[in-house]
Design a protein around this nucleic acid. Structure first.
Lengths: 338, 338
DNA sequence: TGCCCGAGTCGAAGCGCTTCGACAGAGTAT
DNA sequence: ATACTCTGTCGAAGCGCTTCGACTCGGGCA
């Protein structure tokens, strides 16, 4: 492995000068700079990460902690992870991938060993066991998602309440008076995952305000489960004409089942989803949807990290405005009684 | 941050003794060992990763490089990544997540900077630009997937050719004489992704051998694209009764379209997929399928890495036997002429 | 009895880098 | 001309750990 000393020797300068060329922390004459840079290029020099971390006590690594459960939204998680990795690289950082499995232990390990300079956590639960640890962490911590009490933490999230409300408002605006929200699996609500509960709350609030009747049905992502829920919904509320879906794997089953029942989308019933753009575009009907901006979330999380690492302050809570795009799956409610 | 010196002082030993307790590289009396261990626990000591890496020239990190394109199989990639991270942890390693974006540059950077001790690459293309670099890498490299020339590289992969053959054999065994393979998007074949081509080759070979006529149709994962391809297939070969699908997002559209055309699965047509178990179980019909063992691939890749890191030799090519599970989507071909 | 050996421990020398203080020399203000 | 200030560079001191050689102390063997 080529070291800074070799680069220095070849350029006829001292190692510290090479270091200053690399870091830009002291001014260097352009003649020296270019000699050093040539030398670096010619030798194919890359600073040793360990030595650098030891000397500067900064590792240039951001740790990314995956959710404890990976039973949902895998593609979304993946997109976020890739966006985090890409954005981090733009800032000269690498990403350490941690699974939630080790829990709080992993947080301690990373902090204790200075393996990373900061930490991003995805999909933290409303009262996650790691929260106290994160609050007085020695390093910047950014959450993607929002716990019950976000005080002392930096959070980046889609405004799911607004997303839920937007869906209801959209349907209500089209004249739908009875709607159903097909949600994530029951387990997701049971473990108090923030985004699911917030969407529901936002939708309920808007429904109450607009005088729309709304049914909430948590649903597993299997075809059978969706079929069962759909049957129950039409049983209980035969007049249901609007659907909100927040469960990527329920989308296609739902569309398929509606077709089978002879309910045309959007003529007879309207469907609006909260899902990644990609999913909305790939469905058998182009879905009106509120986009789940996975990449944007990942990007912003890294940017908040960089803010903190460079001493800048930033918003505690960075809530993305949801954007509802109307496509082919929503339309005016059939005139009542017709 | 607490250092090894503090641990040593508190335990009344020298730093080197603590180090030996930690590494087990020299024998330590059990009395000393337990004093040191208590001291470690009480102080909450974690060895500084940078210092350790510098002194030992081993970082205890495995780099995981994502595919260049993330236009497909996101959930599979994710599963692999999580399995890699989990398995690596079991061996005391962390995982550095790299995107393919930087290409060969990233490979050089990681090797040059000793940021990782080994590297795992996912979904390498048949003649990937990074291959030469990887061949004479200073560190163990393991590929998940298989390039055209795997010499000098360690590869872990599902035996996709066998998987393709198994699908054909399964359908042929049920009496189907005309089958269609609905494949990944054309772009995937164009960039010569190994698994797609191998599946096709395996299927073709088996079809030829068993005297089955087979059509290959690369297909985008949208509903429209699948609809168009299906129309073409039935146009060209109205007698087609068997389908092999190797494109996760085409599955549900296909099933839905067959339903619309009044072709019952599995009474009229049979469908067998190459996809993750999860996808096969969640589809609207329980799919007969060859499982894509994402977790197993990730786990094995890490194990090959550990083999190499500890000086063991291992198979150059670790091909997983495909397993076809018959579920509700395949059945005997209708008697000809009936 | 003397010698050797292994077990258990310590001290010190780095690993490759950053960074601080020092310093030479050129420019600027007096 | 003097006294500064800046700019550009160097040397040396660590950062916290691992590891090598050396040392001590008992026990076993001749």
């Amino acid at each position: 492995m080529v070291t800074i000393a070799e680069v220095a020797r070849r350029a006829g300068v001292s190692p510290s000068t090479v270091s200053y060329v690399l870091s830009g922390k002291r001014s260097i004459s352009s003649a020296t700079r270019s000699r050093v840079e040539r030398s670096i290029k010619e030798l194919g020099y890359h600073p040793n990460a360990g030595a650098r971390a030891l000397a500067s006590s900064r590792s240039n690594v951001v740790a990314l902690m995956m959710p404890l459960r990976t039973d949902m939204y895998l593609p979304v998680m993946m997109e976020i992870a890739v966006a985090v990795a890409t954005t981090a690289r733009e800032h000269g950082y690498d990403v350490l991938l941690l699974t939630g499995e080790e829990g709080a232990q992993a947080v301690r390990r990373i902090h204790g060993s200075s393996r990373a300079d900061a930490m991003i956590l995805m999909d933290v639960e409303l009262d996650d066991e790691r929260l106290p640890l994160l609050r007085d962490a020695p390093q910047p911590v950014v959450l993607i998602g929002r716990p019950a009490d976000p005080s002392g933490l930096i959070c980046v999230d889609l405004d799911f309440a607004a997303a839920g409300a937007a869906c209801v408002a959209h349907l209500a605006g089209l004249g739908h008076r009875e709607i159903a929200l097909i949600g994530e699996a029951p387990a997701v609500y049971e473990r108090h995952t923030g985004f699911a509960e917030r969407t529901l709350a936002g939708a309920r609030g808007e429904a109450a305000q607009l005088g729309v009747r709304m049914l909430h049905r948590p649903t597993e992502g299997t075809y059978e489960a969706v079929a069962a829920q759909l049957a129950r919904i039409f049983d209980e509320r035969p007049g249901t004409t609007g659907f909100i879906v927040q469960n990527e794997s329920a989308i296609e089953p739902l569309l398929s089942l509606l077709r089978q029942r002879g309910r045309a989308v959007p003529e007879d019933v309207s469907v609006v989803a909260v899902c990644p753009e990609q999913a909305a575009l790939h469905a058998s009907v182009r879905l009106s949807s509120v986009a789940l901006p996975a990449q944007e979330l990942g990007r912003r999380a890294v940017e908040r990290v960089m803010d903190r690492l460079s001493g800048r302050t930033c918003e505690q809570l960075d809530l993305l405005e949801p954007a509802l795009t109307q496509r082919g799956s929503t339309g005016p409610a059939a005139a009542p009684g017709s």
